[in-house]
Deep mutational scan, measured.
Amino acid sequence: QVALSRTQVCGILREELFQGDAFHQSDTHIFIIMGASGDLAKKKIYPTIWWLFRDGLLPENTFIVGYARSRLTVADIRKQSEPFFKATPEEKLKLEDFFARNSYVAGQYDDAASYQRLNSHMNALHLGSQANRLFYLALPPTVYEAVTKNIHESCMSQIGWNRIIVEKPFGRDLQSSDRLSNHISSLFREDQIYRIDHYLGKEMVQNLMVLRFANRIFGPIWNRDNIACVILTFKEPFGTEGRGGYFDEFGIIRDVMQNHLLQMLCLVAMEKPASTNSDDVRDEKVKVLKCISEVQANNVVLGQYVGNPDGEGEATKGYLDDPTVPRGSTTATFAAVVLYVENERWDGVPFILRCGKALNERKAEVRLQFHDVAGDIFHQQCKRNELVIRVQPNEAVYTKMMTKKPGMFFNPEESELDLTYGNRYKNVKLPDAYERLILDVFCGSQMHFVRSDELREAWRIFTPLLHQIELEKPKPIPYIYGSRGPTEADELMKRVGFQYEGTYKWVNPHKL
């Protein structure tokens, strides 16, 4: 086992960053958080920038500027975001240094004079007029057009580079997404736009490419001749908990499936790229999406959770019991969808996408189930092999396979070949997804960000279904809070070829 401390991990990262040409360590950078008073800024962006600063992973002359409508001070920003920093008493001095680099400007999102004030403020910072500028839009999409237009007109660096990070949702359907994309691309070049999907920053999602293309053993079996089906799962054990009003506007397909799960599907299904260059990788992902037809209604199961009468606390409440959810809402909190990649490698292999709230566990994984062994000599005792990439929690890679049961006879039983990170790298604290992705933006690497043509294809696949749901308002199937979801989803999976045995229990190697 390799035991690495946080300091050692960050030392390795620093070495990698400083050796590259793309990370300008000594240049002045300004990180501007648009929507600095909001939840995302408070819980994710400010803490992430602090962790990067604490670990010495930001360029040395980096300033952080918050911008929002609320009249706040840096002290206010500190008060609301610091509880999420997880700072230790030993880091007190470092924390003071961090907040000394912070400033805040209040202004409207659609007022040109406010942006001119913001620009004057940035120019007044040390070497601010020639600094590289990175704008993070932690804002609702309704203000994107006004904000990007004003940034472009008043706040661009004339000497350094300018980059803009856009948070999902990128529209509600193909038409609104196209409108937003066309607007942003009329102001910024594609190499300046970073559409963030934080799932692409997760260690195991990034590991998929290495697993596939750096190991000879997987190449020959990664196709329709050997793989019976692919299941991509995202499960949350909690409901909307008072935030249903926002969720109800989008629903589970827009929230998770059309982005996170579809991105994971691309990494499983794509061909080997010409290189690890950002556009070479994204070219292959677009090719996969172009091979997927629009979702067919007979390959869809929609569910909505109801309270568990035997549960406790939140578990007793259904989705419609959330006071922020519109009365009688038919918005799905669970969806199972089957897609097919219609190309030579994957023809006929079902890709089953499942996601839901208020389920029995927290889990995100990719599961490849292989065909049955031909010419069975073990009297149907063999179960199908599976390769599982567990994204969260407890990152893991393992192969479910058959071995001989101890004893006199040739009785096979299920076991696993474990390729888990935790076994080799004991207690290594890896940077989280937002840390990686923000560092990628500083480096100018777009590999783990969504390109406009990729986004367009993703919406093309799901828009007809979303429009049909909005028009017909089908009643989702009720499922109990804390269950596996509607049984109809299991029946759909069985119908397209997935075999669920229920006889195997994964042993978490992190707890051995």
Results as ranks from 00 to 15, higher is better:
Asp432Thr: 09
Phe351Asn: 01
Arg362Asn: 06
Leu419Pro: 01
Thr324Leu: 12
Asp347Cys: 08
Ala396Asn: 05
Asp283Arg: 01
Gln381Ile: 11
Leu419Glu: 01
Asp283Lys: 04
Leu359Lys: 00
Glu395Thr: 07
Asp283Pro: 01
Ala358Asp: 03
Arg354Leu: 00
Lys400Asp: 03
Gly485Arg: 04
Lys317Phe: 13
Met408Gly: 08
Ser445His: 12
Gln499Ser: 14
Val268Asp: 01
Glu386Thr: 04
Val300Thr: 15
Arg254Val: 00
Asn394Phe: 10
Gln258Ser: 07
Asp440Gly: 06
Arg436Cys: 05
Gly356Val: 01
Gly497Trp: 05
Asp453Leu: 07
Tyr340Val: 09
Arg484Ile: 00
Trp459Phe: 03
Tyr425Arg: 04
Cys291Val: 14
Leu455Phe: 01
Lys404Pro: 05
Lys285Val: 03
Gly328Val: 10
Pro412Val: 09
Gln380Pro: 11
Asp376Met: 09
Thr331Leu: 00
Pro431Glu: 09
Asn423Ser: 15
Val349Asn: 04
Thr503Asn: 15
Met408Ala: 06
Ser329Tyr: 01
Phe409Gly: 15
Asn385Arg: 03
Ala315Ile: 11
Ala364Pro: 05
Asn308Ala: 12
Arg354Pro: 07
Tyr319Ser: 00
Leu471Glu: 15
Tyr500Asp: 03
Glu344Ile: 07
Gly497Ala: 10
Asn298Ala: 14
Gly482Val: 00
Ser483Phe: 08
Pro464Asn: 13
Gln392Cys: 06
Gly307Lys: 15
Ala274Glu: 13
Leu417Arg: 03
Ser452Trp: 07
Ser275Cys: 08
Arg282Trp: 03
Glu342Trp: 10
Gly422Met: 11
Ser445Val: 10
Asp372Ile: 02
Asp283Asn: 12
Val288Gly: 05
Leu417Ala: 04
Ala433Asn: 05
Thr333Cys: 00
Met257Cys: 13
Tyr479Arg: 04
Gly328Arg: 12
Arg367Lys: 01
His371Glu: 08
Tyr319Gly: 03
Thr399Asn: 07
Gly444His: 07
Tyr500Met: 08
Met270Tyr: 03
Asp255Asn: 00
Leu339His: 07
His260Asp: 03
Leu289Gln: 05
Ser275Ile: 05
Leu455Gly: 06
Pro323Cys: 13
Met270Trp: 02
Lys317Ile: 12
Pro309Asn: 15
Cys355Arg: 00
Gln296Lys: 15
Thr316His: 09
Asn360Phe: 00
Val268Ala: 08
Gln263Pro: 04
Leu430Trp: 09
Val300Gly: 08
Ala315His: 11
Gln369Gly: 06
Val397Lys: 00
Pro406Leu: 07
Ser278Tyr: 11
Leu465Ile: 15
Ser483His: 07
Pro326Glu: 08
Glu491Asp: 13
Gln369Glu: 02
Lys404Asn: 02
Ala274Pro: 12
Thr276Glu: 08
Val496Phe: 12
Gly313Leu: 12
Leu430Gly: 04
Pro486Asp: 05
Leu262Met: 13
Thr420Gln: 09
Leu492Ile: 15
Asp279Lys: 14
Gly375Ile: 06
Glu457His: 12
Lys287Val: 07
His260Val: 03
Ile352Asp: 02
Gly444Glu: 08
Asp321Gly: 10
Phe442Leu: 07
Lys383Phe: 10
His467Glu: 09
Asn411His: 10
Met408Pro: 06
Ile377Ala: 06
Gly482Pro: 03
Thr503Tyr: 11
Leu267Glu: 02
Phe442Tyr: 09
Leu368Trp: 04
Arg460Asn: 12
Val388Gly: 02
Met493Pro: 06
Lys404Ser: 00
Cys443Leu: 11
Arg345Phe: 10
Glu395Pro: 08
Leu339Asp: 00
Phe410Leu: 14
Val441Arg: 03
Val366Arg: 03
Arg367Thr: 02
Lys400Trp: 02
His379Met: 09
Leu455Asn: 09
Lys287Leu: 07
Ile469Ser: 11
Gly307Tyr: 08
His260Pro: 02
Val268Pro: 05
Gly407Lys: 04
Asp372Gln: 11
Tyr481Ile: 09
Asn360Glu: 09
Gln296Gly: 14
Glu472Asp: 14
Lys400Phe: 01
Asn423Lys: 12
Thr276Asp: 13
Leu262Gly: 07
Ser483Cys: 10
Tyr434His: 09
Asn385Cys: 05
Gly356Ile: 06
Lys405Cys: 13
His371Trp: 09
Val397Gln: 00
Glu342Met: 11
Val366Asn: 01
Thr399Tyr: 13
Gly307Ser: 12
Leu339Met: 13
Val388Glu: 03
Pro350Gln: 02
Cys382Asn: 14
Leu430Pro: 15
Val295Glu: 06
Gly407Thr: 07
Glu294Trp: 09
Asn385Ala: 02
Met401Gln: 07
Val295Ile: 14
Met447Ser: 03
Gly482Ile: 03
Gly422Tyr: 13
Ala374Gly: 10
Asn343Ser: 14
Leu320Asp: 05
Ser278Leu: 03
Gly318Gln: 05
Lys429Asp: 10
Ala297Cys: 14
Gln499Tyr: 13
Pro478Leu: 07
Thr463Pro: 04
Lys363Arg: 10
Gly375Leu: 12
Tyr434Gln: 04
Pro464Ala: 10
Asp418Met: 04
Arg436Phe: 03
Lys317Pro: 09
Phe409Tyr: 15
Tyr434Cys: 00
Lys429Tyr: 12
Arg384Asp: 00
Asp279Gly: 09
Leu455Lys: 03
Lys357Ile: 05
Lys473Pro: 12
Lys400Ala: 03
Leu465Asn: 02
Val388Trp: 03
Gln380Glu: 15
His379Tyr: 14
Ile469Lys: 06
Met402Arg: 00
Asp432Arg: 11
Val286His: 08
Ser445Leu: 15
Tyr319Gln: 03
Val281Ala: 09
Leu359Thr: 08
Glu501Ile: 11
Val325Asn: 05
Val349Thr: 07
Asn360Cys: 06
Glu312Gln: 13
Asn427Arg: 07
Glu361Trp: 00
Leu387His: 05
Leu261Asn: 00
Glu470Asp: 11
Val301Phe: 04
Asn259Gly: 00
Met493Trp: 09
Phe351Cys: 04
Gly497Asp: 13
Ala364Tyr: 00
Val288Pro: 03
Ala335Trp: 04
Thr333Gln: 03
Phe351Trp: 06
Val373Phe: 05
Gln446Tyr: 05
Asp440Asn: 10
Phe449Cys: 01
Val286Trp: 07
His371Ser: 12
Arg254Ala: 08
Trp346Pro: 06
Asp372Arg: 09
Gly485Asp: 00
Lys404Trp: 01
Leu492Val: 08
Asn411Phe: 07
Tyr504Asn: 05
Thr276Tyr: 00
Arg354Lys: 12
Thr463Leu: 02
Lys426Arg: 12
Val325Leu: 07
Glu271Val: 04
Thr316Asp: 09
Phe410Asn: 08
Asn299Trp: 09
Ile292Arg: 01
Ser483Tyr: 05
Val337Gln: 11
Gln499Pro: 04
Ser275Tyr: 03
Ala315Met: 15
Gln369Ile: 06
Phe378Arg: 03
Asp418Tyr: 02
Ala396Gln: 00
Thr333Ile: 03
Val338Asp: 06
Asp283Cys: 04
Ile352Phe: 07
Ala358Thr: 02
Tyr305Trp: 06
Gly502Trp: 08
Gly422Phe: 11
Tyr479Ala: 00
Gln369Arg: 02
Glu413Trp: 11
Cys291Met: 13
Asp279Trp: 10
Glu365Cys: 06
Arg460Phe: 03
Glu344Gly: 10
Pro431Tyr: 11
Val268His: 00
Glu470Gln: 13
Leu368Ala: 07
Thr420Asp: 14
Asp490Ala: 08
Val450Asn: 03
Arg367Asp: 07
Lys426Leu: 11
Arg484Lys: 04
Leu302Gln: 11
Thr420Gly: 08
Ala335Pro: 02
Ile389Glu: 00
Leu267Ser: 08
Val450Ile: 07
Gln381Arg: 11
Gln304Ser: 08
Arg282Pro: 02
Lys404Glu: 01
Ser415Asp: 04
Leu465Lys: 04
Leu368Thr: 03
Val281Thr: 09
Lys357Pro: 03
Cys382His: 14
Val507Trp: 14
Val428Tyr: 15
Val341Arg: 05
Cys443Thr: 10
Lys494Gln: 14
Pro323Ala: 15
Glu435Asn: 11
Pro326Cys: 06
Phe409Ile: 15
Asp347Glu: 14
His467Phe: 12
Ile292Tyr: 06
Gln380Met: 11
